[in-house]
Simulated assay, not measured.
Amino acid sequence: IFNLQKKFDLLHEINRNLEAMARQLYDYWFVQFDFPDGNGRPYKSSGGRMVFNESLGINIPLDWDVKRLNYYIESNNTGDWGYDEPSENRVPVGCVRGADIVKLNDVPLRYVKKSNTHKLLTPYDIVIEVSGGSPVQATGRCAYITPGVIERNYGRMTCSNFCHAFRLKNIEDSAYFYFLWKTLYDNNIMFNFEGKTSGIKNFMTETFLANKWYFAPKDIQKLFFDRVSNIYSIIDSNVSEINLLVKQRDELLPLLMNGQVSVMPTAVNCDLFKT
């Protein structure tokens, strides 16, 4: 049991480090502008040309686009909380709430009408919390829906009514868009785009999406997507292993407590049990 806990802790720490690596890569490429140039060298540090963009009021790399955020979004789907119980015209789905955005694991099982399956999430959608928050926590938190997230949450997912799901025109833009959104959120920008109705804070999604920002050329965003996808593939694999270990622990602990299973004195790992 104790060795299981050590393995949990190790996998969680690995995932934290991997997430930090992905965030650092975004910062290095798209904040410091040291993405790989044509020779594989860091662009800005190697003398890459920067130009002043009047609409943003900052210097950005030559040949980068400036467009409204909504230009990159194909659809903005509202959520569907569904029903507690199954029926003939409903399908089981995992449903992402605001409370699930951080962990994206073990989300509630719900049942949505077959007529609403167009609201199901697809890989690399980005889920945004649009209602809720608190005086110290803005609305607008985001989640990146990788294939592994869908796989470990019943194989089909939607989001709740308090969330929206963005599907981008090109999934290879999704990693950049997600980290851009997350960076703006972490810098408290979303507090400036909140309204209140009936005492509940609501994110002004369309107003926010009308803002302009810079976007790298397609080859840079694709390269970033490929690297981030590899990182999240490892993260998702680790989460699946954690879930399996949790199941083993939960099955073993009651047996250990009532004496049906004992730990051998010479045990050095979690596989050495006898009944």
Score class of each variant (00 low, 15 high):
residue 166 F to R: 01
residue 147 P to C: 09
residue 177 F to G: 02
residue 124 Y to M: 09
residue 179 F to V: 01
residue 174 S to K: 07
residue 148 G to I: 07
residue 150 I to S: 00
residue 129 E to M: 12
residue 128 I to N: 00
residue 161 N to C: 12
residue 96 V to Q: 00
residue 162 F to A: 11
residue 104 L to E: 02
residue 154 Y to H: 15
residue 167 R to N: 11
residue 103 K to C: 10
residue 100 D to P: 03
residue 149 V to M: 08
residue 91 V to N: 05
residue 182 K to C: 05
residue 158 T to K: 04
residue 104 L to A: 06
residue 122 T to E: 14
residue 122 T to S: 14
residue 163 C to S: 09
residue 171 I to D: 10
residue 139 T to M: 12
residue 121 L to Q: 00
residue 158 T to H: 07
residue 158 T to L: 03
residue 108 P to E: 06
residue 154 Y to V: 07
residue 146 T to R: 01
residue 143 A to Q: 03
residue 171 I to P: 14
residue 181 W to C: 01
residue 104 L to P: 01
residue 174 S to G: 09
residue 133 G to S: 12
residue 100 D to L: 01
residue 174 S to R: 07
residue 92 P to Y: 09
residue 125 D to G: 07
residue 99 A to P: 06
residue 171 I to Q: 13
residue 178 Y to T: 04
residue 143 A to Y: 03
residue 121 L to A: 02
residue 145 I to N: 00
residue 103 K to F: 13
residue 113 K to Y: 12
residue 103 K to R: 15
residue 176 Y to I: 07
residue 157 M to R: 03
residue 172 E to M: 13
residue 150 I to A: 03
residue 124 Y to H: 14
residue 147 P to A: 08
residue 110 R to A: 06
residue 165 A to N: 05
residue 149 V to Y: 03
residue 132 G to N: 05
residue 160 S to C: 13
residue 106 D to G: 15
residue 123 P to F: 08
residue 100 D to Y: 01
residue 163 C to F: 03
residue 117 T to S: 09
residue 100 D to W: 01
residue 123 P to L: 10
residue 169 K to A: 11
residue 109 L to D: 02
residue 180 L to M: 15
residue 108 P to V: 10
residue 124 Y to N: 11
residue 155 G to N: 13
residue 160 S to R: 05
residue 145 I to E: 01
residue 102 V to G: 10
residue 141 R to G: 07
residue 123 P to I: 08
residue 111 Y to T: 06
residue 144 Y to V: 04
residue 107 V to R: 00
residue 138 A to C: 14
